[in-house]
């Protein structure tokens, strides 16, 4: 098994060697003294997964124990979240809480989600929030949201692609339709990649997307950014007006953060909050995130808890309006 040997070598070179000494050190203190499990309720490869791995690497360095990412996908991110809600509140099991698992899916899978997104978790820290951006194919003639509204009211209506049904992007399409007064023709795809391709190819004129998956295409000019659905203009795209500026009162960010089971000792939550914010606050991480179009979070543990509570209250009625149920 020669491959085995080489993989060891690589590991040893980059990861293991560094942690060995720290592990011995960590054993002295109370927490953390064993590896921490970070559950990502999505399949590997998505934005959440990637950010989780970045954060895991950062926390590993700061806490001195290994932080292992474990993917438990399924049922709109509720399978993994439920597993964590039921885990021992000892600070060794964390979840990447996010807009799907903690705000939208509990409403979509009503009655079948066996956890309370607020009460069953000790929310630790907001990691990143990504504004929603509406982009259009350059040949579609849509340059502003008013253009889009006009097209929606015209014959045939307006097709809008999203990364999937029940996503925050989908709910944005529903809310926008309510504001315009005409139902938009929602075209769901399996992920942002295929949806973006359909927009670039001109099969669908518009797309509601979270900024990181659009950044490159906007910069290249293969799509036009029509409106940014956030409170302020994004620093990386100062030319793109917000929805509010264009007369549509909509602001929505998708977000993810760290949470632990309810009952996790406050000292551990505080420590994790501190370390996460310190990691997110470093200039290099900030630059990397804003390059991608996201904003690193800087909330206290209570602040993040309140944030989740507000999001739950915000999305539940919208999910019902959209008619997205899992029955």
């Amino acid at each position: 098994m020669s491959w085995a040997l080489s993989r060891r070598t690589v590991l040893a070179g980059s990861v293991v060697a560094g942690t060995a000494s720290r592990r011995a050190l960590a054993q002295a203190g109370a927490w953390p003294s064993q590896p921490i499990r970070l559950v990502v309720p999505f399949a590997p490869g998505g934005t959440t997964d990637l950010v989780a791995r970045l954060v895991a690497a950062g926390l590993q360095e700061r806490l001195g124990v290994s932080v292992i990412v474990e993917n438990r996908a399924g049922a709109g991110a509720t399978v993994g979240s439920e597993a964590v809600a039921r885990a021992a509140p000892d600070g060794y099991t964390l979840v990447m809480s996010n807009i799907a698992s903690h705000a939208i899916s509990p409403a979509v899978y009503r009655g079948r989600v066996r956890y309370d997104p607020v009460a069953d978790f000790a929310h630790i820290a907001l990691v990143v929030s990504n504004p929603t951006v509406w982009v259009a194919n350059p040949r579609s003639g849509i340059r502003t949201l008013q253009d889009a509204a006009a097209k929606a009211r015209g014959p045939g209506g307006l097709d809008v692609a999203t990364s999937g049904a029940g996503s925050s992007n989908h709910l944005m399409v529903v809310r926008m339709g309510q504001l315009i007064g005409v139902e938009l023709n929602h075209i769901p795809f399996r992920g942002a990649g295929p949806a973006m391709q359909a927009v670039i190819a001109g099969q669908v004129p518009m797309m509601s997307d979270s900024l990181p998956s659009s950044v490159a295409h906007i910069r290249q000019g293969s799509v036009v950014a029509v409106g940014m659905a956030s409170a302020q203009r994004h620093p990386a795209f100062p030319d793109v007006p917000t929805f509010r500026e264009q007369g549509f009162d909509l602001a929505s960010d998708s977000w993810f953060g760290l949470s632990a089971p309810a009952g996790t000792p406050a000292a551990i939550v505080e420590r994790l909050n501190r370390e996460t914010r310190a990691f997110l606050g470093s200039a290099e991480v900030r630059a990397r995130f804003s390059e991608l179009g996201g904003t690193p979070g800087d909330l206290t543990a209570e602040g993040y808890g309140d944030f989740v509570r507000r999001e739950v209250a915000l999305w539940a009625p919208l999910v019902q309006a959209a008619g997205a149920t899992a029955d």
Binding site: A43, P44, L50, L54, A216, Q220, S222
Partner: peptide
């Protein structure tokens, strides 16, 4: 195009992004 054709390619995009490279026509 910077568009992943399958799950493995999506991971590649992720790896590139972590490295600070935006996959795409340019």
């Amino acid at each position: 195009l910077g568009i992943p054709a399958n799950a493995v390619m999506a991971l590649m995009v992720g790896a590139l992004i972590i490295q600070g490279i935006q996959p795409g026509p340019r």
